[in-house]
Structures are given as structure tokens and as C-alpha cells.
Nucleic acid binder design. Structure first.
Lengths: 232, 232
DNA sequence: CGTGCGATTGATTGTCTTCAATAATGGTGG
DNA sequence: CCACCATTATTGAAGACAATCAATCGCACG
């Protein structure tokens, strides 16, 4: 397990001492179904995943993306069935740790317990930001790209402002409550403005500062800590 | 402290053994400001409060309502500064418990710790439902009324389908990302449809089943457990 | 008795959706 | 190897929904 998404590496080390196994989930398949009561804590090792709910009319709302190092099912600690599903956006390698062991580790180490809390608070803060941002289509697209850029940068997957963006425009729309048609137009507009170039599932941000200013993005809610510099 | 919003009364009892004090916050004033690092866990004793963020353009987004028994600042357990503010929708009585004592109680009692987790998961599930519901103005207004009804019913504040709804139409709009004008029109429409009557800060639902079906409301995400029957 | 807040209604504008058609791409089976 | 198909992206035209602008009303309060 390379990356555990917990800020303090000391707490991450606790996780690494627990036994884990890896499963493979193909693109578009569910990692966890709604209503599941997972016995494991899941971590995305490689690939992208997304939380989503299905509306009565059949449409889908993505409520969060999960990138390598993110955990899916911390809620399992409370032993509640999942109220939403989690799908693989790309082919995924998913590590899993028996939840009992995580609970035991949390009981033993207050610092580890706080790290789990902090992880949940980041999820929650992100949901609030998504709610707050859902006003203007153009800038919410830009803001999402900024968020993904910041998170990918923190795990070293950004190179000179460029990164792989495996989500389809339809999935971006599902995340932002926009039609794929409108996402396409907004991306076109952002490209014309020289802020973001997206093509063939690759994104490039020529001027990060300009983009972040334009869409009022501030990465503080992600609590990424000191990230590895993006250039490599 | 009458009501602590934790499902299992045994865990609630743990809280009740901790020393607490009560502060008064007048309507429209902040209970907690953005960036605050509260030393206390706050509980709404009486009144309504709301979490909110301010956008760059000055507009406000309400990301959740807090009713009597709800806790404001569980996140304080992770000792992170608040990323959003909390305001009093009505005059509020707010109880507070030193956060150190809560942390100590959680360390001692795994069941209490799980109860805190569950509380956070409900907040998170609610945020996801708000995101998912933000598609159709009419039904999102109806859904919000249903949510508030269900939560108020669980604390015995609903009588024969009627309850006090102290939020202004502007605040409802801020919660749903709608203008107050449009909220007004949607409420008018719901009234015409015989689903909800709102007037003078009082709401009445003539046929709960019909309303819940119409807006696809299912209270499960609130984890209210066995509620007190509404008739009294 | 004015003042301010909240609710209500009308008219107009604009954003986003819907419907539709085409193009580009990659994978599959014959 | 290539024809076929599914998926994704792209663009145009029309329509729907919600925002904006603006005015009035009712009411509580000083």
C-alpha cells in the first residue's frame, strides 16, 4: 500500500501494520453496492472511483471522487449499511483491511482515531464545498478541475500542470448536476479563456494561479498538508 | 439538557454526566464564526440554527439546519478550525461541553465513540441527499419540508402534521440554492397541489404519505430510530 | 405613523436542458 | 484485416425553468 491519504504519516504507519489484501474492480463496475455492510475498510490503491446515488428518475448523482490513497468506507466503523454506492471510474486496485482491526487500532491509538476523524471531516467539508459551489456552471466545472488537480498533485500525479482526467464529461456532469452537453460547452469556454485544456482524458492547466483565482478555489478544505511539488 | 440527538439513550446518558453550561444567542447572530477553534462541543437546546458559507459574490449557502438536540461542532474533536459558520435562525439556547471531556469520554467508551461516528455519518448522509436532490426546485422544496418534518417529529415538535417553520423563504432559498422569489412560487404551487401549507412561519402537511411519495422522501438517511408518535 | 422586513406577484431575461444529428474513437467478431 | 457497433465528444436549434428586476402588500415595532 503506497498511499493512505491520512495526513500524518505516523497514523498511516498504523494502517500499514494491519493485514490487507487487494481486489481488482473493472471500470464502470461497483466497488460497493448501496445497502452493503462492508466487513472491510477499502482503500483505492490505483485508479479513480466515485460515490453516487441513483434518483427515482434513473439519473445519477456523483457526490465525490476517490483517488489513489482515499478510503471508501470509513463509515463502516459505525457498522451502518452504505447509503450510497461506489463505482470504479477506471479499472481499480482496491486494498481492504478488516474493519474490526481498524476499530481495535482506533481504540488503542487516540492519534489514529483522530486521523480517522480528520479524514471524515475532509469528506464532509468537500461535500459542503460542492453544495456551495453549485451556482454557476462555468466556475463549478473549473472548481472541480481545481480540486482534482490539487488532490492529484498531493499524490504526485501532476506533471507541469498536466494530469490524467479519466472521468467522462457525462460523469463530470453527474458530479456537478449538469448535462454532458453543457459540461462540454463549459469546457470549450474554459479552453477559449485559456484556463483549462481537456482532451483525450488528459487535462492541462497553463496558469494555475489564474484558474484558481477565477473560480475562487482555495485548497484549504482538502487539508492536503505539505504536498510534494508537482514538477518531476 | 433534554435531548442530545444521539440515537442510543445509553450514549446520550454519557453526555449528560459531563458538565455543561448554556449560552443564549439571538436570532440572526453567529453561534460560531468561520475559522473558530471551539473549546466546546455545542448542542442546540432550543431554537433553530444553520450552517452556512459565504460565497465570493456575497451570497450565502446554507448547508444544513440544526434543530434542538443537534450538535454543532463535533468536528472540534479533531481540533480543526471551523470551515463554515453557524448562525442562529431563531433565538437559541446553546449548551456547551468542554471538548476535552468529550474526547476523554470517547476514549473510555467505544459505544460512545461509535455514537459520535454515527452522528457524523448522519450529517454526511444529509449533505449527500441535499446534493442529490438539487435537481428540481419544486420537489427539493418539498423534500426539505419533509426532512424538517421528520426531524421535528422525532423530537416531538409536530402536532397533527403541523409544526413551526421559523426559516424565512430567503433562508430556505439559501439552503436550496434558489431565490426567495422562486421559493415563494414553489410553496404556492405546493399549496395549490394540496401538499403543503406554509403561512406565518407555520407549516402544515395534510397528507404526509402523499407528500413523501411525491418528492421521493425516505427518512432512512436521518437514522431517527423509533420516533415518538407525532399526535399529542 | 413612518420604517423595515418578509411575503407576494408580474414581466422579462438568461442559463441550462432537451432533442437531434454528426464525428471520432476503440473494441469485437467474422 | 476490416466491417460493425458502442461509447464519447461535439455542435446546433428550440424550449423550459429559474433568476432578475421591480412593485405592492401586510405586519410588527419603535
Amino acid at each position: 500500500m503506497q498511499n493512505v491519504g491520512l495526513i500524518d504519516s505516523k497514523e498511516a504507519a498504523t494502517l500499514l501494520t494491519l493485514p490487507w489484501s487487494v481486489i481488482h474492480v473493472p471500470r464502470q463496475k461497483d466497488i460497493l453496492r448501496i445497502g452493503a455492510s462492508p466487513e472491510y475498510l477499502y482503500f483505492i490503491e490505483d485508479g479513480w472511483a466515485a460515490r453516487y446515488s441513483i434518483r427515482r428518475d434513473g439519473s445519477r448523482r456523483i457526490t465525490g471522487f476517490m483517488l489513489p490513497g482515499d478510503s471508501c468506507s470509513i463509515h463502516a466503523i459505525a457498522r451502518e449499511p452504505l447509503d450510497h454506492a461506489i463505482m470504479a471510474v477506471t479499472d481499480c486496485e482496491v486494498a481492504r483491511i478488516p474493519v474490526d482491526l481498524v476499530i481495535a487500532a482506533a481504540a488503542e491509538s487516540p492519534a489514529f482515531s483522530v486521523a480517522l476523524w480528520r479524514s471524515k471531516l475532509i469528506d464532509e467539508a468537500t461535500l459542503r464545498v460542492w453544495l456551495t459551489n453549485s451556482k454557476d456552471a462555468l466556475w463549478s466545472v473549473a472548481h472541480l478541475i481545481c480540486e482534482l488537480h490539487a488532490r492529484l498533485d498531493a499524490i504526485g500525479e501532476v506533471s507541469d500542470g498536466a494530469f490524467v482526467l479519466p472521468a467522462t464529461q457525462e460523469q463530470i456532469g453527474d458530479a456537478l448536476n449538469l448535462t454532458p452537453v453543457h459540461v462540454n460547452r463549459m469546457l470549450k469556454k474554459l479552453r477559449s479563456a485559456g484556463l483549462i485544456q481537456v482532451r483525450d482524458f488528459k487535462a492541462f492547466i497553463p496558469d494555475l494561479q489564474a484558474l484558481q483565482t477565477a473560480c475562487a478555489f482555495s485548497p484549504s478544505y482538502l487539508h492536503l498538508g505539505v504536498s510534494t511539488p508537482s514538477r518531476h
